[in-house]
């Protein structure tokens, strides 16, 4: 009987300690967040709303270069409808676009034109490197092709394939939407818009 009593006592003290620890922890958290709660929650929520709006209305700039452009046009067509994801309005002027889908191989003569178009796009802007040639040079490892468009512009999503089917490109756009939403309201997103 003595042993059981001792065990009961030990358990009771342990439970009591845990309760005290938990209470301490909660008080600590309360103290940490009390000053900043109002501020971060408001801006984070607002940032999330802005991010949701941005991701659902990505306007691609027409930057079809080669074979991948055909699959990009197929994505905008009736079978794989990109309009469901908000990305149907292909703007011809880069000043009105926020997504540049580099679809096709970028040659040495085209690379400065690519950067110029990228610079003309207003912030926030994103780049999808569609296909193997814009991601890493593809099957063309030679003097004429830029081995990866990320040597000239920063890329957010790489979509592999030669050419990637429209369903793969839509998956890439969805991943970009997830990226926008995950970074929404954070410092990264605020720096983009600045």
């Amino acid at each position: 009987m003595g042993l059981i009593d001792q065990a009961v006592d030990a358990l009771e003290t342990e439970i009591g300690n845990l309760k005290l620890n938990a209470q301490d922890a909660v008080e600590q958290l309360d103290a940490d967040l009390s000053g900043a709660v109002y501020d971060t929650i408001l801006t984070t929520k607002l940032g999330k709303v802005i991010g949701w709006a941005q991701k659902n209305a990505l306007w691609p700039a027409t930057f079809g270069l080669a074979c991948c452009a055909i699959e990009m046009m197929a994505m905008a067509n009736s079978r794989w409808d990109a309009a469901r994801f908000g990305a149907e309005v292909f703007r011809a002027s880069p000043r009105q676009a926020d997504l540049m889908i580099v679809s096709g191989r970028v040659s040495q003569k085209m690379a400065p034109v690519l950067t110029r178009i990228y610079e003309q796009m207003p912030e926030p802007k994103w780049v999808i490197a569609m296909g193997a040639c814009s991601s890493c040079g593809g099957i063309f490892n030679n003097y004429a092709i830029v081995q990866g468009v990320d040597r000239w512009v920063p890329v957010d999503v790489y979509v592999p394939g030669c050419p990637p089917g429209p369903e793969a490109l839509i998956y890439g756009v969805i991943k970009l939407q997830e990226k926008i939403l995950n970074n929404a309201g954070s410092d990264k997103a605020r720096m983009r818009a600045a």
Partner: peptide, 11 residues
Amino acid sequence: KVPTRYKPNQV
């Protein structure tokens, strides 16, 4: 690096 004689600002 292959000499392209291109710098983005120059174009």
